[in-house]
Computed example of a mutant assay.
Amino acid sequence: MKKNITYCGHIGIIGRTNVGKSSILNKLINNKISITSKKSGTTINNIIGIKTIQQYQYIYIDTPGIEIKKKYFKKNILNKNNYLKLIIFVISTIKWLEPEEKILKILKKINISTILVINKIDYINNKKILLPFINKIKKKYNFIAIIPISAKTGENIDALNTIIKNNIPQSKYIYSKNEITPLSKKFLISEIIREKLIRFLNQEIPYLIKVIIESYYIDKFKICNIVASIFTKNLRQKKIIIGKNGKKIKMCHYLSKKDIEKLLNMKVKLYLKIKLFNLTQ
């Protein structure tokens, strides 16, 4: 009897900050596991998302935006991992600046098949400028494909899926068919809360605000009880998070609870605490 052939591989999603890497991951796996916001530097950890369709298993790694500062640039996924089978290099519209050049320099050294994704084309009014830009980029590197997309509208996501499928290697599955991420529920819950804080507080506090799930249990009524601590640097930032008459923290609580219930598919009681902590320690 002939064995079923399967295809599987790790796919790194890279690029500088705020180009839409997390939105692309969420679109590719049809699940929201990576938080998004308009603020640069929202993703601070590698987020793994898995999609399994028939004999194909795609393991995507959404990475923090690559910094051009030397001490940060050495810490990105390209320099410390050699298990990637495919790379999705994301840029925003037709912006090609110093960070892109530095990333390209690394790509030339590691020699991993790479797709260049031009995201946020919904912001480009005159689409005629895309073709000359693509022709210019083609001369820089031998990308296996250059594809303009919009993670926001979903434009060309299906075409991107097809390119990925055609370039994934034959291999055994690493994860079970129904798994969408190896990340713990506690981590995903903390990220949901952090996303709401970042979105509501915008530039008022640093994105490095920390959320830790102190308690997580399901009671006899099948309700998930969660106690989350929000750590911030000082009293000033604590007051900003709370907002006038507690308005901001109440809204963050409401939206976080809504998304957590969707994630867990059950009712949730969420308790938020704000604590002072030196985030540099």
Rank of each mutant, 00 (worst) to 15 (best):
S150P: 06
I112G: 09
N245T: 05
Q57A: 05
K39M: 09
S176L: 12
E98P: 03
Q55E: 15
I33P: 00
Y271I: 12
I134M: 04
I249C: 02
G12S: 15
K51V: 14
D122Y: 06
K105P: 03
S113G: 08
I174Y: 15
L116P: 00
S215K: 15
L25S: 06
M266D: 02
K247L: 09
K85Q: 15
G15R: 00
L97T: 11
K69S: 12
N135Q: 13
V19P: 01
T43M: 07
K273I: 08
I66E: 03
R236H: 15
V19W: 02
I50N: 04
T42W: 01
T6C: 07
G41M: 07
G20D: 08
L116N: 06
Y83S: 13
Y7W: 01
L130D: 03
K233A: 08
L160Q: 09
L84M: 13
L104V: 02
D122T: 11
K85H: 14
K233M: 11
K32T: 11
R194P: 03
K262I: 06
N178Y: 07
N81L: 10
I121H: 02
I87Q: 01
N142T: 03
Y217W: 04
K75E: 13
I59N: 02
N156E: 05
F187W: 06
I223P: 00
S113M: 10
I5L: 11
K165H: 07
K74G: 10
L28I: 07
I14Q: 03
K70I: 12
Q55F: 05
I205F: 07
K185P: 02
K140P: 01
T162M: 12
K273G: 08
S229A: 14
E195D: 06
I106Q: 11
K220H: 10
